[in-house]
Protein backbone atom coordinates (compact mmCIF):
# COMPACT_ATOMS: atom_id res chain seq x y z
CA UNK A 1 0.00 0.00 0.00
CA UNK A 2 1.21 3.46 -0.84
CA UNK A 3 0.92 6.46 1.43
CA UNK A 4 -1.23 8.35 -1.07
CA UNK A 5 -4.92 8.71 -0.33
CA UNK A 6 -6.71 7.64 -3.51
CA UNK A 7 -10.34 8.32 -2.51
CA UNK A 8 -12.26 10.76 -4.72
CA UNK A 9 -15.75 12.20 -4.98
CA UNK A 10 -17.35 12.26 -8.43
CA UNK A 11 -20.26 14.68 -7.99
CA UNK A 12 -21.54 12.85 -4.92
CA UNK A 13 -20.38 9.36 -5.91
CA UNK A 14 -17.74 8.42 -3.37
CA UNK A 15 -15.07 6.19 -4.84
CA UNK A 16 -12.26 4.37 -3.06
CA UNK A 17 -9.99 5.24 -5.98
CA UNK A 18 -10.31 7.10 -9.30
CA UNK A 19 -10.30 4.06 -11.61
CA UNK A 20 -13.58 2.87 -13.07
CA UNK A 21 -14.68 1.09 -16.23
CA UNK A 22 -16.43 2.57 -19.27
CA UNK A 23 -19.95 1.60 -20.24
CA UNK A 24 -20.27 -1.17 -22.81
CA UNK A 25 -16.74 -2.48 -22.34
CA UNK A 26 -17.18 -4.28 -19.04
CA UNK A 27 -20.40 -6.31 -19.27
CA UNK A 28 -21.89 -5.89 -15.81
CA UNK A 29 -18.53 -6.62 -14.14
CA UNK A 30 -19.26 -10.28 -13.39
CA UNK A 31 -17.44 -11.31 -16.59
CA UNK A 32 -14.16 -10.02 -15.09
CA UNK A 33 -14.29 -11.86 -11.76
CA UNK A 34 -12.30 -14.70 -13.35
CA UNK A 35 -9.44 -12.24 -13.96
CA UNK A 36 -9.36 -10.21 -10.71
CA UNK A 37 -11.39 -8.98 -7.73
CA UNK A 38 -13.64 -6.36 -9.36
CA UNK A 39 -14.42 -4.97 -5.88
CA UNK A 40 -10.98 -3.29 -5.94
CA UNK A 41 -12.10 -0.83 -8.61
CA UNK A 42 -13.41 2.61 -7.70
CA UNK A 43 -16.49 2.20 -9.87
CA UNK A 44 -18.02 0.34 -12.77
CA UNK A 45 -20.47 1.80 -15.28
CA UNK A 46 -22.95 -0.69 -16.65
CA UNK A 47 -23.93 -1.14 -20.31
CA UNK A 48 -26.40 1.47 -21.53
CA UNK A 49 -29.93 0.21 -20.88
CA UNK A 50 -33.25 1.47 -22.20
CA UNK A 51 -36.72 1.01 -20.73
CA UNK A 52 -37.55 -1.60 -23.40
CA UNK A 53 -35.05 -4.06 -24.97
CA UNK A 54 -33.03 -2.96 -28.01
CA UNK A 55 -31.67 -5.38 -30.62
CA UNK A 56 -28.66 -3.32 -31.73
CA UNK A 57 -27.11 -3.50 -35.20
CA UNK A 58 -26.42 -6.53 -37.41
CA UNK A 59 -22.98 -8.22 -37.49
CA UNK A 60 -20.18 -7.42 -38.09
CA UNK A 61 -20.02 -4.99 -35.20
CA UNK A 62 -16.29 -4.61 -34.65
CA UNK A 63 -13.16 -4.13 -36.72
CA UNK A 64 -9.57 -3.21 -36.03
CA UNK A 65 -7.77 -0.08 -37.22
CA UNK A 66 -4.26 1.14 -36.47
CA UNK A 67 -4.04 1.60 -32.68
CA UNK A 68 -7.75 1.29 -32.15
CA UNK A 69 -11.00 -0.48 -32.81
CA UNK A 70 -14.34 0.55 -34.27
CA UNK A 71 -17.68 -0.73 -33.01
CA UNK A 72 -21.27 -0.53 -34.13
CA UNK A 73 -22.98 -2.47 -31.34
CA UNK A 74 -25.84 0.02 -31.39
CA UNK A 75 -26.69 -0.25 -27.68
CA UNK A 76 -28.08 -3.77 -27.78
CA UNK A 77 -29.54 -4.28 -24.32
CA UNK A 78 -32.21 -6.38 -22.62
CA UNK A 79 -33.99 -3.40 -21.05
CA UNK A 80 -33.66 -2.17 -17.47
CA UNK A 81 -36.10 -4.69 -15.92
CA UNK A 82 -34.44 -7.75 -17.45
CA UNK A 83 -30.97 -6.38 -16.74
CA UNK A 84 -31.70 -5.79 -13.06
CA UNK A 85 -33.47 -9.17 -12.76
CA UNK A 86 -30.33 -10.92 -14.05
CA UNK A 87 -27.54 -8.81 -12.65
CA UNK A 88 -29.07 -6.98 -9.66
CA UNK A 89 -27.86 -9.51 -7.09
CA UNK A 90 -24.31 -9.43 -8.44
CA UNK A 91 -24.31 -5.62 -8.59
CA UNK A 92 -25.68 -5.29 -5.02
CA UNK A 93 -22.87 -7.53 -3.83
CA UNK A 94 -20.33 -5.51 -5.78
CA UNK A 95 -21.59 -2.28 -4.19
CA UNK A 96 -21.24 -3.92 -0.76
CA UNK A 97 -17.65 -4.82 -1.64
CA UNK A 98 -16.92 -1.11 -1.97
CA UNK A 99 -17.12 -0.57 -5.73
CA UNK A 100 -19.52 2.16 -6.79
CA UNK A 101 -22.06 0.94 -9.37
CA UNK A 102 -23.09 3.55 -11.92
CA UNK A 103 -26.03 2.56 -14.12
CA UNK A 104 -26.17 4.00 -17.62
CA UNK A 105 -29.47 4.94 -19.28
CA UNK A 106 -30.17 5.42 -22.99
CA UNK A 107 -33.22 6.34 -25.03
CA UNK A 108 -34.42 7.55 -28.41
CA UNK A 109 -36.37 10.43 -26.89
CA UNK A 110 -36.57 12.37 -23.63
CA UNK A 111 -39.56 10.23 -22.64
CA UNK A 112 -37.57 7.03 -23.17
CA UNK A 113 -34.65 8.35 -21.11
CA UNK A 114 -37.08 9.28 -18.36
CA UNK A 115 -38.72 5.82 -18.36
CA UNK A 116 -35.34 4.10 -18.15
CA UNK A 117 -34.20 6.33 -15.29
CA UNK A 118 -37.48 5.90 -13.41
CA UNK A 119 -37.17 2.13 -13.69
CA UNK A 120 -33.61 2.18 -12.36
CA UNK A 121 -34.60 4.60 -9.59
CA UNK A 122 -37.18 2.06 -8.45
CA UNK A 123 -35.37 -1.23 -9.13
CA UNK A 124 -31.71 -0.43 -8.43
CA UNK A 125 -31.08 0.57 -4.80
CA UNK A 126 -27.48 -0.61 -5.39
CA UNK A 127 -26.76 2.21 -7.88
CA UNK A 128 -24.52 4.94 -6.48
CA UNK A 129 -25.58 7.15 -9.37
CA UNK A 130 -26.63 7.20 -12.99
CA UNK A 131 -24.95 8.08 -16.26
CA UNK A 132 -27.05 9.47 -19.10
CA UNK A 133 -25.60 8.53 -22.48
CA UNK A 134 -26.54 11.27 -24.91
CA UNK A 135 -23.66 10.51 -27.21
CA UNK A 136 -23.74 7.00 -28.64
CA UNK A 137 -23.08 7.52 -32.34
CA UNK A 138 -24.72 4.26 -33.36
CA UNK A 139 -28.39 4.89 -32.93
CA UNK A 140 -29.99 6.59 -35.90
CA UNK A 141 -32.96 8.09 -34.09
CA UNK A 142 -31.43 9.15 -30.78
CA UNK A 143 -27.91 8.91 -29.44
CA UNK A 144 -25.82 11.57 -31.07
CA UNK A 145 -28.91 13.56 -31.97
CA UNK A 146 -29.76 14.01 -28.27
CA UNK A 147 -26.31 15.30 -27.45
CA UNK A 148 -25.47 16.99 -30.73
CA UNK A 149 -26.20 20.52 -29.57
CA UNK A 150 -25.74 22.10 -26.13
CA UNK A 151 -29.46 23.00 -26.09
CA UNK A 152 -30.62 19.42 -26.76
CA UNK A 153 -28.19 18.07 -24.19
CA UNK A 154 -29.42 20.51 -21.55
CA UNK A 155 -33.04 19.70 -22.37
CA UNK A 156 -32.45 16.00 -21.62
CA UNK A 157 -30.68 16.83 -18.36
CA UNK A 158 -33.37 19.26 -17.21
CA UNK A 159 -36.07 16.66 -17.85
CA UNK A 160 -34.22 13.96 -15.90
CA UNK A 161 -33.00 16.08 -12.97
CA UNK A 162 -36.26 15.89 -10.94
CA UNK A 163 -36.49 12.10 -11.34
CA UNK A 164 -33.73 11.14 -8.91
CA UNK A 165 -31.84 12.53 -5.94
CA UNK A 166 -28.86 10.34 -6.70
CA UNK A 167 -25.94 11.85 -8.66
CA UNK A 168 -26.44 12.08 -12.42
CA UNK A 169 -23.49 12.03 -14.82
CA UNK A 170 -23.84 12.88 -18.48
CA UNK A 171 -21.77 11.01 -21.08
CA UNK A 172 -20.89 13.65 -23.65
CA UNK A 173 -20.27 13.43 -27.36
CA UNK A 174 -16.75 14.38 -28.47
CA UNK A 175 -17.85 17.66 -30.04
CA UNK A 176 -18.59 21.25 -28.94
CA UNK A 177 -17.21 20.35 -25.52
CA UNK A 178 -16.97 23.68 -23.65
CA UNK A 179 -20.44 24.98 -24.49
CA UNK A 180 -22.13 21.60 -23.99
CA UNK A 181 -20.35 21.14 -20.66
CA UNK A 182 -21.55 24.57 -19.46
CA UNK A 183 -25.11 23.88 -20.64
CA UNK A 184 -25.15 20.56 -18.77
CA UNK A 185 -23.77 22.09 -15.59
CA UNK A 186 -26.48 24.76 -15.71
CA UNK A 187 -29.10 22.05 -16.28
CA UNK A 188 -28.12 20.29 -13.06
CA UNK A 189 -25.62 17.57 -14.06
CA UNK A 190 -23.51 16.44 -11.09
CA UNK A 191 -20.55 15.37 -13.24
CA UNK A 192 -19.55 14.84 -16.88
CA UNK A 193 -18.14 11.73 -18.55
CA UNK A 194 -16.13 12.21 -21.70
CA UNK A 195 -15.41 11.09 -24.29
CA UNK A 196 -17.67 8.57 -25.95
CA UNK A 197 -16.41 6.93 -29.16
CA UNK A 198 -15.64 9.22 -32.10
CA UNK A 199 -17.79 8.77 -35.22
CA UNK A 200 -15.52 7.24 -37.87
CA UNK A 201 -15.44 5.10 -41.02
CA UNK A 202 -13.42 2.18 -42.30
CA UNK A 203 -13.87 0.99 -45.89
CA UNK A 204 -12.86 -2.36 -47.36
CA UNK A 205 -11.39 -1.12 -50.64
CA UNK A 206 -11.71 -4.54 -52.27
CA UNK A 207 -15.48 -4.73 -51.82
CA UNK A 208 -15.99 -0.92 -51.55
CA UNK A 209 -18.16 -1.61 -48.52
CA UNK A 210 -17.93 -0.60 -44.89
CA UNK A 211 -15.99 -3.09 -42.78
CA UNK A 212 -18.94 -2.97 -40.40
CA UNK A 213 -22.66 -3.41 -40.92
CA UNK A 214 -23.18 0.38 -40.98
CA UNK A 215 -21.30 3.09 -42.88
CA UNK A 216 -20.13 4.82 -39.69
CA UNK A 217 -19.12 3.43 -36.33
CA UNK A 218 -17.50 4.52 -33.06
CA UNK A 219 -13.74 4.74 -32.80
CA UNK A 220 -12.02 3.92 -29.49
CA UNK A 221 -8.70 2.74 -28.12
CA UNK A 222 -5.24 4.26 -27.73
CA UNK A 223 -5.48 6.46 -30.83
CA UNK A 224 -8.31 8.57 -29.34
CA UNK A 225 -6.48 9.25 -26.08
CA UNK A 226 -4.74 12.55 -26.98
CA UNK A 227 -8.03 13.93 -28.35
CA UNK A 228 -9.83 12.88 -25.18
CA UNK A 229 -7.19 14.54 -22.98
CA UNK A 230 -7.69 17.81 -24.86
CA UNK A 231 -11.47 17.57 -24.44
CA UNK A 232 -11.24 16.79 -20.72
CA UNK A 233 -9.00 19.82 -20.31
CA UNK A 234 -11.49 22.01 -22.21
CA UNK A 235 -14.36 20.76 -20.07
CA UNK A 236 -12.35 21.27 -16.88
CA UNK A 237 -11.67 24.86 -17.89
CA UNK A 238 -15.35 25.43 -18.69
CA UNK A 239 -17.14 24.04 -15.62
CA UNK A 240 -16.84 23.51 -11.89
CA UNK A 241 -18.42 20.05 -11.69
CA UNK A 242 -16.11 17.01 -11.69
CA UNK A 243 -15.11 15.17 -14.82
CA UNK A 244 -14.74 11.46 -15.54
CA UNK A 245 -12.04 11.11 -18.22
CA UNK A 246 -12.53 8.34 -20.78
CA UNK A 247 -10.73 7.45 -23.99
CA UNK A 248 -7.87 5.16 -24.87
CA UNK A 249 -6.55 4.57 -21.37
CA UNK A 250 -4.14 1.64 -21.61
CA UNK A 251 -1.71 2.52 -18.79
CA UNK A 252 -1.37 4.39 -15.52
CA UNK A 253 0.42 7.13 -17.43
CA UNK A 254 -2.64 7.62 -19.68
CA UNK A 255 -4.84 7.84 -16.57
CA UNK A 256 -2.42 10.32 -14.97
CA UNK A 257 -2.68 12.56 -18.05
CA UNK A 258 -6.45 12.74 -17.57
CA UNK A 259 -6.06 13.63 -13.88
CA UNK A 260 -3.59 16.40 -14.70
CA UNK A 261 -5.91 17.70 -17.45
CA UNK A 262 -8.66 18.02 -14.85
CA UNK A 263 -10.40 14.65 -14.51
CA UNK A 264 -11.40 13.52 -11.01
CA UNK A 265 -11.87 9.93 -12.16
CA UNK A 266 -10.80 7.85 -15.14
CA UNK A 267 -12.71 5.05 -16.87
CA UNK A 268 -10.97 2.22 -18.69
CA UNK A 269 -12.75 1.06 -21.88
CA UNK A 270 -11.28 -0.80 -24.83
CA UNK A 271 -8.30 -1.93 -22.72
CA UNK A 272 -10.67 -4.24 -20.78
CA UNK A 273 -11.52 -6.08 -23.97
CA UNK A 274 -8.01 -6.62 -25.27
CA UNK A 275 -6.27 -7.18 -21.92
CA UNK A 276 -8.89 -8.17 -19.35
CA UNK A 277 -6.76 -7.46 -16.26
CA UNK A 278 -5.98 -3.89 -17.39
CA UNK A 279 -7.99 -1.89 -14.84
CA UNK A 280 -6.26 -3.07 -11.62
CA UNK A 281 -2.85 -2.74 -13.31
CA UNK A 282 -3.69 0.82 -14.36
CA UNK A 283 -4.81 1.58 -10.79
CA UNK A 284 -1.51 0.29 -9.39
CA UNK A 285 0.47 2.32 -11.93
CA UNK A 286 -1.56 5.46 -11.19
CA UNK A 287 -0.93 5.03 -7.47
CA UNK A 288 2.83 4.69 -8.07
CA UNK A 289 2.79 7.82 -10.21
CA UNK A 290 0.93 9.81 -7.54
CA UNK A 291 3.50 8.68 -5.01
CA UNK A 292 6.35 9.71 -7.32
CA UNK A 293 4.78 13.17 -7.55
CA UNK A 294 5.23 13.51 -3.80
CA UNK A 295 1.57 14.15 -2.90
CA UNK A 296 -0.42 12.76 0.03
CA UNK A 297 -3.74 12.86 -1.75
CA UNK A 298 -4.52 12.17 -5.43
CA UNK A 299 -6.96 15.11 -5.32
CA UNK A 300 -3.93 17.45 -5.20
CA UNK A 301 -3.10 16.36 -8.76
CA UNK A 302 -6.50 16.98 -10.34
CA UNK A 303 -6.06 19.74 -12.91
CA UNK A 304 -2.41 20.19 -11.90
CA UNK A 305 -1.36 20.50 -15.53
CA UNK A 306 0.98 23.44 -15.94
CA UNK A 307 0.91 25.48 -19.12
Amino acid sequence: MSGVSMAVDLGGIRMANPIGTASGTFGCGRQFEGFYDVGRLGAITTKGCSAEPWNGNPAPRVCEVTSGIMNSVGLQNPGVREFVAHEGAYLSGLAERGCAVICQVVGHSIEEYASALELYEELAPFAAGFEVNISCPNVAAGGLAMGSTPERAAEVMRALRPLTRRPVLVKMAPSRVPETARALEDAGADALSLINTIPAMSIDVRTRRSRLSRPTAGLSGPLVHPIAVRMVWEAHNAVGIPINGIGGVMSGQDAAEFILAGATTVSVGTANLVQPDSAPRILAELERWAESQGVHDINELIGAFEC
Binding site: T25, P58, P60, R61, V62, I69, L273
Partner: peptide, 22 residues
Protein backbone atom coordinates in the same frame (compact mmCIF):
# COMPACT_ATOMS: atom_id res chain seq x y z
CA UNK B 1 -17.94 -13.69 -35.88
CA UNK B 2 -15.69 -10.68 -35.73
CA UNK B 3 -15.25 -10.31 -31.99
CA UNK B 4 -13.20 -8.52 -29.38
CA UNK B 5 -13.27 -9.76 -25.76
CA UNK B 6 -14.34 -13.40 -26.21
CA UNK B 7 -15.93 -13.60 -22.74
CA UNK B 8 -19.23 -11.75 -22.88
CA UNK B 9 -18.24 -8.18 -22.01
CA UNK B 10 -18.80 -6.19 -25.20
CA UNK B 11 -21.72 -7.43 -27.37
CA UNK B 12 -19.67 -7.16 -30.58
CA UNK B 13 -20.10 -10.82 -31.61
CA UNK B 14 -23.86 -11.06 -32.08
CA UNK B 15 -25.63 -13.94 -33.80
CA UNK B 16 -29.25 -13.36 -34.85
CA UNK B 17 -31.50 -16.21 -33.81
CA UNK B 18 -34.91 -17.19 -35.12
CA UNK B 19 -37.56 -15.26 -33.21
CA UNK B 20 -35.52 -12.05 -33.15
CA UNK B 21 -33.26 -12.82 -30.20
CA UNK B 22 -29.60 -11.76 -30.36
Amino acid sequence: RMMSCGFGACCTCNVSLVGGRQ
